[in-house]
Computed example of a mutant assay.
Amino acid sequence: MNLELQTTNLTNDIKNLIASAQEKAIRTVDYQRVLLYWNIGKRIFEEVQGGEARAEYGKSIIKNLSSELEPVYGSGYGVRQLELMRQFYRIFPIANTLYSQLNWSQYKLLIRLEDDVKREFYIAESVKNLWSKRDLERQINSSLYERLLLSSDKKSVLEVAKNERLPQNPSEIIKDPMVLEFLGLEKKSAYYEKDLESAIISHLQEFILELGNGFSFVSRQKRLHIDGDDFFVDLVFYNRLLQCFVIFEIKTHKLTHQDIGQLQMYVNYFDRVEKQDFENPTIGVLLCADKNDTVVKYTLPQNNQTILASKYQLYLPSEEELVKELYKELREIKMVEGEK
């Protein structure tokens, strides 16, 4: 090994050591800040709880405290921030349940969540996937938890998030709808499929984050040569949790039974040619602008577990839209159970 190569390797090793130490130092400082705010919140909470006429007394205490601290320590000790610290302790009263992987900015987002199970879900996903504050905020704003509830129940969603069990079927991982606001596409009545596919490839990291746990990219426009004819699968991924290929076909129109048949052929090909014996059956996902759930239901066999249809949205859904979708899903489940 020549001197120049040795120097390069040594330099890279030291750069990695420095970067690792800096990252650990930042995490340590962030965690100490979290503990500081927890202790301040604890002290305020205990003082307020010990007083009479607690609501008014609490407001006065925090206001007076802020007037003393803010001129010395800055805006981080304003009334609003001190109230957040008090809420922080109230929601997380046990210090050793705090996570060193989460910083104060993330905890401030979590404090605002009123549903305990929802909060547990986002904590588990943040820790497991090393989400940044921006990632966590995006997932909350895109209602990830509610979208997963459309195909599962609270208990199952939380168990999968906390690694207490592996997902039992694709619907526990594949979201419907998928929110693709990060593509930055303008709202138009229609798109070419190649344009949507190209936008996804350009934002592949964000798309994988939207897909969720265990996904890795395999190929784009995968060529299948079948008896002299060529076919091309839009996107191919692999999911290590489900241990199977997950192939995506993009349709910018309303889903048809022909689309489902085409995807079924691709799934069959992967199962018979690409899949190894130790792997699970391939999953096919039709990512479409719109779908008729009844058409999907009657096109596929009753025991179907490998073909799913998911609508994409190019904007963040409102809470009202998700509630509407959730009730719609519950009605369809009841109808299916009534037919059995």
Rank of each mutant, 00 (worst) to 15 (best):
P93K: 01
N96P: 02
N96T: 12
T97C: 07
L98F: 08
L98Q: 07
L98T: 06
Y99G: 04
Y99F: 14
S100G: 15
S100I: 11
Q101W: 04
Q101E: 11
L102C: 08
L102K: 01
L102Q: 00
L102V: 10
N103P: 03
N103G: 13
W104A: 06
S105M: 11
Y107V: 03
Y107R: 01
K108I: 00
K108G: 04
K108M: 09
L109K: 12
L109M: 14
L110V: 08
L113Y: 10
L113G: 03
E114G: 14
D116T: 14
D116E: 14
V117R: 12
K118Q: 09
I123P: 02
E125K: 06
E125Y: 11
V127H: 01
K128V: 12
N129M: 11
L130N: 13
L130S: 15
W131Y: 05
W131C: 01
K133A: 13
L136C: 02
E137G: 15
Q139I: 11
Q139Y: 08
I140E: 05
I140S: 05
I140F: 08
S142A: 12
S143M: 12
L144F: 06
Y145L: 06
Y145E: 11
E146D: 07
R147E: 01
L149R: 04
S152H: 06
K154A: 09
S156N: 13
V157T: 08
L158C: 05
L158I: 11
E159G: 05
E159S: 12
A161P: 00
K162T: 08
R165V: 07
R165T: 15
R165G: 02
R165C: 15
P167A: 11
